[in-house]
């Protein structure tokens, strides 16, 4: 599969009074055309900042660095602000966690959708409205044409997230970055939105990077999964491989925390991972997970191993970052 997005050695640093916070540490992954890649990890592991870094939307003082940041053959690292703006919202689009606050309360849905197209093309106001109405229908907003004249506060959370998705599609993007798009929604609406994303991929060949902490979402949607911990990628591979044969103790710990109907005996205790995430300020000498890992050896405290292919199926593109042999 030809990659649409290639990320190599992405780092995000945030200067703080206590020292530099290395929020994203040497993260690499690829997204193929029409592929859904999930980035999973707990709060503060750097997954959201990774997604914002791709869009060049990092907050104020955060700094981005990467050995390679390539989107459809374009090097994002050397792009001017203006050229980046032309890509953003056009060929690469993003939706966010909070549909309730992600739309501007002062403008109609139609106005906000139309400007997403009109700032990139010469489309007329009427053409932009027409496309907005089509896309609202595509993402399953009932009575879409009437909604164009409505304001965000007149719509429910689920509808607003659908509007956000439709708005992101205005420029016919090749890549959609979705930062926890269902976290703030009811479970039933969550399933609908996820189904919609999958459906869009199937119909339009859209590539999707989905940021989530919900392993159920990953299992349902992802082709490939990247597991992040404390700013680093600890395991990566096809979702069946990673979930079927997790090689890193952290991935295994995460999977143990989730009940699986039919597999988890009723009344049994769910797993939990003891301890807390290490501080991301300054360097972490060894494996960042060592302090919480029940398999940690002395070597783990001094040396962070590189990502290496998982032993069981090396050809599947499944790799992990641990000194252990990765036997689940």
């Amino acid at each position: 599969m030809t990659p649409i997005l290639e990320v190599e050695g992405l780092c995000v640093d945030i200067p703080t009074p206590a020292g530099t916070l290395h929020a994203v540490r040497d993260v690499s992954f690829r997204v193929g055309k029409g592929e859904i890649l999930c980035i999973v990890g707990e709060s503060g592991c750097g997954k959201s900042l990774t997604s914002l870094a791709l869009m060049d939307l990092l907050p104020g003082r955060a700094r981005r660095e990467a050995r390679r940041l390539s989107f459809a053959g374009t090097d994002l690292g050397t792009l001017s602000q203006k050229a980046m703006r032309n890509l953003r919202g056009n060929r690469m689009a993003m939706i966010f966690q909070e549909p309730m606050t992600s739309l501007n309360p002062a403008f109609t849905i139609g106005n906000q959708m139309a400007e997403a197209l009109r700032c990139h093309t010469r489309a007329s106001a009427a053409e932009a409205r027409e496309r907005a109405a089509e896309l609202l229908a595509l993402v399953g907003v009932p009575a879409g044409r009437d909604r164009l004249n409505q304001y965000p506060h007149q719509l429910s959370g689920g509808l607003r997230q659908r509007v956000m998705i439709a708005m992101a599609l205005m420029g016919s993007p090749d890549l959609l970055i979705a930062d926890e798009p269902t976290t703030a929604l009811d479970v039933t609406i969550q399933a609908q939105i996820l189904h919609l994303l999958e459906d869009l991929r199937d119909r339009t060949g859209l590539s999707i990077v989905l940021i989530t902490h919900d392993l159920g979402v990953v299992a349902q949607l992802a082709d490939r999964v990247v597991v992040m911990y404390a700013g680093s990628v600890v395991e990566e591979g096809p979702v069946d491989e990673v979930f079927g044969r997790p090689a890193h103790p952290y991935t295994r710990g995460l999977l143990d925390c989730v009940p699986v109907p039919g597999r988890t005996p009723p009344g049994s205790l769910l797993g939990s991972i003891p301890g807390v995430v290490p501080s991301l300020i300054g360097a972490i000498p060894g494996c960042p997970f060592a302090a919480r890992c029940s398999f940690a050896a002395d070597a783990c405290l001094t040396r962070q191993p590189p990502l290496r292919p998982a032993p069981l199926q090396p050809a599947a593109g499944h790799s992990f970052r641990c000194v252990l042999e990765g036997s689940a």
Partner: peptide, 16 residues
């Protein structure tokens, strides 16, 4: 606010 981030994510000119 979040909607300003959305506006930037659309690729709008900073002045807009």
């Amino acid at each position: 606010s979040d909607y300003i981030r959305t506006a930037r994510a659309k690729g709008l000119h900073p002045a807009v």
